[in-house]
Amino acid sequence: MPLDVLEPFHYDFFRHGLIAAALVGALCGLMGVYIVLRRMSYIGHGLSHAVFGGAVVSHLMGWNFYIGAGLWGFLSALLIDAAARRRRIGSDAAIGIITTSSFALGVALISRGRGFTRNFEAALFGNILGVTAADLWVIGTVAVAVAVFVFFAYKQLLFATFDPEVAPVYGVPSRLIDALFSLALAATIVASMNVVGVTLIAATIVIPPVTARLLSDRFSRVLLGSSALGAGIGVAGMYLSYHFNIASGASIVLLGAAVFMLALTYSATRRRSLPALAMRTARPASPPAPELLD
């Protein structure tokens, strides 16, 4: 029996899931470049756990998920920032304490009421069925807002990420840029939670930029490549999750890991090839200093 490749597209929930996966993949891929280069991967991972606590609380209180979880995430980010400034604690320990306790709060509340197990699993590992039209609107809005931010702050964001100490000297408003970036990060995580799941979100943030980095040395290309890879892996992963009947978050992450391995192999062979090596070692002689010519 020939496999009906178009079969899943007959279902609304699958189309929703597919669009969500593409948007979330592109969004995480885009933000991921900055998150990885700013060495904030762990913060992204921690923040998604912290947001889980907020999600459960807002569910129990009957608040809107996005508002409750978003506020919770933003407050956690501020708290992490404040705790990390105390030198005696250290930022990694601060993130560990704040995010795991927020996560534990969510787990504790959920374990009291038995009815939430389904939602609980969805929040942890992502669920293709969980994506509603309203979710799509939120994800789409966040994706557009973040894209607009990155577009208009591209140069400042690049400078502040590459050289945070020097950027202010050249007039870059790095505090404003950093604050907007934290806001974009919290929004990205809250928007992505339902699709990829709390536990796997870090992978969708880290895999596309690291893979794109293997394929280019140019920042603009890494940024575009990472977003495209994120979207592609999201769509393909969603599709595989339907056919193999596995959790959508897991299939997206596994596919991403496979693509990363491919890129790693490709870049290793490319770098070892002789012409490439010659390109890398041969340097044009710099011209002699003018004085030496006198």
Binding site: F151, K155, L158, Y170, R213, R218
Partner: peptide
């Protein structure tokens, strides 16, 4: 991941037009 020209143009980050 930055090229020479990407680094040099950072010096004009606040003077260039709003697009990337």
């Amino acid at each position: 991941p930055v090229t020479v020209e990407e680094v040099v143009l950072m010096g004009r980050a606040m003077r260039m037009r709003p697009w990337p």
